[in-house]
Design a protein around this nucleic acid. Sequence first.
DNA 1: AGGTATCCTTGATGCGAGTCAATTCCCGCT
DNA 2: AGCGGGAATTGACTCGCATCAAGGATACCT
Lengths: 235, 235
Amino acid sequence: MPRKIRSDVRAALRACRLWRTASDEAVDDLAGRATVRDVARGTVLATEGEAAGSFGVLVTGKARVYYLGADGRQITFEVVETGQPIAAVAAMAGSRYPANIETTTPATIAWLPQEALFDLLEREPRVARTIVSELAGRLVNFTAIVQTLALGVPSRLAGYLFQRVLSTGKPSARGLEVDLGMPKGELAVALGTVPETLSRAFSRLRDEGIVEIHGRRVTVLDVRALATMGSGFRE
Amino acid sequence: MPRKIRSDVRAALRACRLWRTASDEAVDDLAGRATVRDVARGTVLATEGEAAGSFGVLVTGKARVYYLGADGRQITFEVVETGQPIAAVAAMAGSRYPANIETTTPATIAWLPQEALFDLLEREPRVARTIVSELAGRLVNFTAIVQTLALGVPSRLAGYLFQRVLSTGKPSARGLEVDLGMPKGELAVALGTVPETLSRAFSRLRDEGIVEIHGRRVTVLDVRALATMGSGFRE
DNA sequence: AGGTATCCTTGATGCGAGTCAATTCCCGCT
DNA sequence: AGCGGGAATTGACTCGCATCAAGGATACCT
C-alpha cells in the first residue's frame, strides 16, 4: 500500500536537478520509497569507506562533504544545500563512500535505496541524459576544486566571498554587503585552513581596501579586485 | 554512404569501457562517424577554456590530462591509455574543457562529435546505466586525486613508486626493482613539483632505508613502508 | 553588573616546499 | 681520452601556512 507522502519531501525531490526531467509520477514513486529522518547539527551521515547502499536528499538544512586527512586535517569538497542529493555519486558508482558527510545545521533527510535511482533510469530513459550531463558537469567542477586548492588561502577566501556576493550580496552604503553564513571558525575549516590563518587573510583583504569587516558581516568595497584575486592572479 | 571503418578504430571503440554494454552495431555507427588522426608526441589535443564540441578515443598511444596553474605550474590529473576516451566528460557536460590534454607518445585518435554519444544514449538506454556508473566511478576517483594533492611530496613520490611496484615491479637481489618510466624532471612535473624538491624526496626515502637509487632504476627495499607513506601517514 | 564561555585576533616560531645559483654526474661525440 | 652539454644534485634563502601561546571581544546567563 502506498505510504503517505510528506509534501516537503515531495517538493525537495521535485526540486532535485539530478532528475529534473523526470515525470511527477516518477518523483512521487521516489518519494514513496523514501525513509525520512530528522537529525541534529553535526550528525555524521556517511563515513569514508562505508559501503554506499543508499543515498539521500536534503529536505531541509545543510551538510558538508569533506575528506579527513591522515593527520586529522579536513578538506571540504562541497557544501550541500536544501534540495540537493547526498552521496548519490557513490551510490551510482556502486562503490564505497569516498568522503565523509556531516550536517552543519539541523536537517531533514530523505534516504532512498540505490535501486530506486536505477529503476528511474529504466522507467524514463530521457532522465538518463540529464543525469549524464549533471554528473559530467560535477566532474568538470571538481577540476575547479583542485585548482582552488592550489591557490593560497587569501585567494580561496576571495573566491568564497565573491560567490557569496553573487548569491546573497545586498547593496549598502559603501558597497555590497554579505553575511558569511557561518562562524569564522567553520569557514576556516571549509576553506581547508585554520582560524588563525583565515583571520590573517581577512586582515589582508581589509588592509588592501577590498573589504570591511563587521563581525560576521562583510562589506565588499572592490568586487573586481575580489574576483581577480579569487581567480588566482597575484596582486 | 558508409565510410570504410578501420579495424583498429573499431577495436579501440569496442574496447571502451564507457559504452561497453552497447551493441556491435551501435559501436560500428560510432566508428563510422569518427575522424581519425595521427599526431606526434607532445601534441596538444585540447586546451583549457576551449568549447568541447567533440571528444576522442585513443586508438594508440598515451596522453596526459593536466591543469596549467596561473603561475605556469602543472598538475597532472590523469594519464590516458590506449582505448580510453579523451575529453568525453566535458563533451557530455556540454561545457568547455576544464583542463589541457597532451599526447606523451605518438598517437592515433578517433574524434567523435558530441552528438554521437547522445544518439547512442537514445538508441540504447541500457548503455545509460553503464555510463552513469562509469562517470560516477570517475567522480569517486577524483576525490582520491584531491587527497593525493593534499599530501607532501615525499608521500606523493612514495605513492607513485608503490603503483610502479604493483604494475612493473621485478624481484631482484635486494628487493623489488622498478623503472621510473620517465626522466626525473618529467616525473617532478607529473607529481606537481620541481626537480630539486623531487631530488630531496628521493634522498629522504633513501636515507630512511626504503629505497636504493640507481639512475632511473629504483630498488625498493621496504614495500610496506612505501605503501604506508604513500597513504599519507607520517613517519 | 559580574562572570563565564566561546569565538576571534595577534604575535612568535617552525616546517615544508619553491627559487636561485653553483656544482657534479652522466652520456654521447669527435 | 678528452670534451661539451643536459640532467641531476646540493646549499642558501624566502615565503606561506600551521602551530603554540597569549590576549581581547562578544554574547549569554543568573
